Simulated scan of single mutants.
Amino acid sequence: MNVVNERDADWFRGIYARHYPDVVRYGLRRLDGTAAAEELAQEVFLVAWRRRREVPARTLPWLYGVGRRLLANHWRAERAAPPPLALLDVPDRDRHDAVARLVDVRAALARLPEDDQEVLRLVAWEQLAVREAAVALGCTVTAAKVRLHRARKRLIEQLRDEPATPPARIGGTR
């Protein structure tokens, strides 16, 4: 049986059921709100259905690549920079250091160029291997490794520039 015959509605329902939550999470990390992330996921799967003959066996990295291109086209059409990552609300002064550090990391990530942000998100948030991230980015594995290495260095530099602020003590001194 050839690929065309195998890529029927049952095939599509299978990849949709398996990867829809992953694609929505991908959108949630890049867009404001659940509705926008779900709309992106619907567009990604529409492209997957239309181009089902081209979808590789490892579908998730390919779907992330489609999502990435859809977002880039959307942002280009608006002629605006991609929206910055939504930061957590300013933590209360009695929050743990981990919350403050997370805010610092997200702020440092937002200051990086979009290409750096994307390779870091794909590997860290989407938990893709570098080989899979290369598919999503549309580049070679070697190029993805270089991009990831450079992005990590720039993120570390940003974090050094903005050290984590320890939470202030409430109620005076010890």
Rank of each mutant, 00 (worst) to 15 (best):
E114A: 15
V105A: 14
L122G: 02
L46P: 09
Q42K: 10
A143W: 10
A80H: 08
V146D: 03
V130H: 00
R147G: 00
L120A: 05
A37V: 05
A35H: 03
R53F: 12
H149I: 10
Q117A: 08
E78T: 04
G67D: 06
R76P: 02
N73S: 11
P113N: 06
D89M: 13
P56G: 08
E78Y: 00
R79K: 10
E118L: 13
G138N: 00
F45P: 02
R58G: 12
T59S: 12
C139Q: 06
D94C: 13
V105L: 14
E78V: 02
R147F: 00
L85C: 10
R76C: 02
A129Y: 06
L40S: 01
L122D: 00
L120C: 08
L122F: 05
E126S: 15
L70H: 12
L85A: 14
A143H: 15
T59D: 01
V123D: 02
D115E: 09
V44K: 01
A37H: 01
A77L: 02
A129Q: 10
R68D: 00
L40K: 01
A133D: 01
R79T: 05
Y64I: 10
A133S: 09
R121S: 12
Y64L: 10
A98Y: 05
W125D: 13
P56V: 12
V141Y: 06
E38A: 01
H74C: 03
P82Q: 11
A86Y: 00
L120W: 03
D104V: 15
D115M: 07
E43S: 05
H96L: 13
R150E: 10
R76A: 08
A108G: 07
A100Y: 15
H96G: 13
L109E: 00
G138V: 02
W62E: 02
K145I: 05
R150L: 11
L109Q: 02
V47D: 00
A124T: 13
R152M: 11
E118V: 14
V123S: 05
E157F: 04
A86P: 03
E38Q: 04
A72Q: 14
D92H: 06
V47Q: 03
A35L: 06
P61I: 05
E132F: 07
E54S: 15
P56Q: 08
E126V: 14
P84C: 07
L46F: 12
P61W: 00
P91V: 12
R52E: 07
L60C: 06
R111P: 01
A151L: 07
Q117H: 11
R69N: 09
A72F: 09
C139H: 03
L71Y: 03
L112I: 15
R58D: 12
T140W: 04
R95K: 11
A86L: 08
V99P: 10
R154Q: 05
A41R: 00
A80K: 11
A144M: 08
A72P: 10
G138T: 02
A81M: 07
L137I: 06
W125Y: 11
A107Y: 01
P56F: 09
L155A: 12
A136Y: 01
D115P: 09
R95N: 13
A57Q: 06
G65S: 10
R50M: 05
T59K: 08
A98K: 08
T59V: 13
R150V: 12
A151C: 13
R150Y: 09
L70I: 14
E126C: 15
V66C: 02
L122C: 07
Q42G: 11
E54K: 15
W125V: 13
E38M: 00
L40Q: 00
P91R: 09
L85G: 10
W125T: 14
P83M: 07
A57G: 02
